[in-house]
Amino acid sequence: MAVATPSFESAPAGVPERSYFASVGAVFEHFWLLYIRTWRGNVIGNFATPTLFLLAMGVGLGSYVDKGSGVGMGIPYLQFLAPALLVSTIMQGAVFEATFPVMAGFRWVRRFHAMHATPITPAAVVGGFIGWLAVHATLVGAIFALVIVVFGAARSVGVILVIPVATLTALAFATPIAAFMAGQRDTNAFNSIWRFGVTPLFLFSGTFFPIERLPEVIRPLAWLLPLWHGADLGRALALGTVGDDPFRHLAHVMILSTVAVLGIVWMLRTFRRQLEGAR
């Protein structure tokens, strides 16, 4: 950093230079403020979604599955479904947070531009926003885990470990999508992301049935489906079966982390371009 011209050192100094983390904290606080403004509705929704899904799929559909051949592994369908459903639900929520709020931040409400007019740097905007995505995902994941426990669908205390897996999965999805949405002028891409990305992943990533049930030819494709890594890992942690195939689960963590890091790097680029490149 260049040294200031002395005559201005003592001039209206006022606000001291901020540390990166203080800036990140302020950006995070903004999103937190937006969240708690409607926290009742948010929390009720966060409880309602898992309750409805576990009732309909886990208990309702599950009773048929368990009467039939079952999912194997000698466990009820509800216990099979719950951890993976937690991961995929948190992923969906994070994808949503990475689309509309990002477009609003750059184009409609322009809150990212407002931040950038202050000592907040583009990198701090990215940091604060990712911090918010992670905290939000963890919060919603924790509520989901609580509902799982209430349903008696937790097989072990390992269900607690599903929460950070869901957060990691959420970041692996949300960061590249946020980076992409930053450059979008309208919401057309949003519909495509949902229709061709999120929904198929939700259905075919081993959440509702083991991917072993898919035709053998397309089964390796699961490795390309990011959600499967999270769902498979989350389930193994909840069922306490991680030790059966440690390398596979280590690979899940590595793949999800790599995607999240690449997403963050991409976000740093697109957010900076949006904030500094505008005419």
């Binding site: 200031a4 001039a11 409400v109 531009h113 407002a114 007019a117």
Partner: peptide
Amino acid sequence: LGLDPTTDGPRIRGRLGVVPQEDSLD
């Protein structure tokens, strides 16, 4: 304020008040 925007942007921005053309109120 005697500073160079390329190296001291955040520090300068700390001393500015900006009313942009396009509203950016939350």
